[in-house]
Design a protein around this nucleic acid. Structure first.
Lengths: 202, 202
DNA sequence: CCTTCAATGGCACTCGGTGTCAAGCAGTTA
DNA sequence: TAACTGCTTGACACCGAGTGCCATTGAAGG
């Protein structure tokens, strides 16, 4: 009768502590501001020690930004899954659209997190850092798809940068409207502006 | 007989200490890596105390990134100085071109600094932060020039983002080639790709 | 000569972050 | 039940970044 449910109890407990920590951090940071809240405070609220906090998260910023971790590899995977015949603008638009949809899905938590990130300089900096890595990933994938040499052609890097510029703009509007504006429609509008540059390669 | 040469000796000394600090930091950081060098070390090399270091620079990253400080306001000023009839792509291209030219001018120092920034994660993060502010500035200037409402139109933000994407790509190539590639030519190529999107507004 | 003011150095302190170690506890084997 | 193993935890010491405070110095100025 399910002696080993594939996940040991230790693993479940670990996940539980991570959630506890994450939730405590989010609440405190949103309430009191990023730099007035100490890690001891967060850890104490979650009922663990400061040392344990750092066994789950690498830094104070990471508690908030961590949920964006695999979004980068996710974006590259989505882009890679598009048909090769598709126009770059369409492939990239779909890629951004999927990420926005992921946010809008659990908009309860995602919206709070995004708003906190965008209005907190230290967190926004980490977010930009992540985006920078995503750009490299997308550029590499684009170069491969189009058979371009990323060392001579500027296109992959520029196209990836434009797509993420669109993503950033859409995310900003979406969070600025408290989730009221439609992510899909915003994405459409942004790519309507950008597309002429993305597809101008022959 | 110029009793007050407009600059007091205290001011000159201040500038001198700043240079000393900046030079010591650049040399040590490039030599030993960003995180293995302590601020005490930098200060000692420059012949001052750690406390004095923080009277000149807000953080360890600032010693390196500081020289980019007014580049942002500079870019906005350049954009604002372009004739209004000019196509946005041309105005923005010129704006980026001026910044690159500023780098290429004192390429002795600028190249070292840029290379250090781009290959050091902590410094690159600060650089991205700065760029983020520049984007806001450029977007605001664009919106004003074109009579657009930045709260409804996505164009200003997107156009500014694309221009800075181009700037980033060009800077990366330039520093990657140790200054061998021509900044002006790189800028031309980048904007050749981007321009169709920038001028598609009617 | 005396005053004023800015720059400095030293010191103590907070906080983020890390290495280390001993203790607690689940699961396993005898 | 006892012993062993492996993982998680808390406590402690420690380092470096960054700040507040105060006493000292030295240049400028009356």
């Amino acid at each position: 009768m399910s002696p080993q449910p594939e996940v040991t109890m230790a693993q479940r407990k670990r996940q539980l502590v991570a959630n506890e920590l994450s939730e405590a951090a989010l609440q405190l940071l949103a309430l009191k501001g990023f730099d007035t809240v100490t890690i001891d405070e967060i850890a104490a609220t979650a009922g663990v020690s400061k040392r344990t906090f750092f066994r789950y998260f690498a830094s104070k910023e990471d508690v908030v930004v961590q949920f964006l971790a695999d979004m980068g590899t996710g974006m590259r995977a989505v882009l890679a899954s598009r048909p090769i015949e598709e126009q770059p603008s369409a492939s990239l638009q779909h890629t951004v659209w999927v990420s926005m949809a992921a946010c809008a899905d659990h908009s309860d938590r995602a919206l709070r997190v995004v708003q906190l990130i965008l209005r907190t300089p230290a967190l926004r900096a980490r977010f930009l850092e992540r985006q920078d890595q995503w750009r490299d990933d997308l550029a590499a994938e684009l170069a491969q798809r189009l058979g371009l040499d990323p060392d001579t052609d500027l296109y992959p890097q520029l196209a990836a940068g434009m797509a993420l510029t669109a993503f950033d703009a859409v995310l900003q509007r979406w969070s600025g409207s408290d989730g009221a504006e439609d992510p899909a429609e915003l994405t459409d509008r942004a790519f309507a502006t950008i597309a002429p540059a993305l597809d101008s390669v022959e």
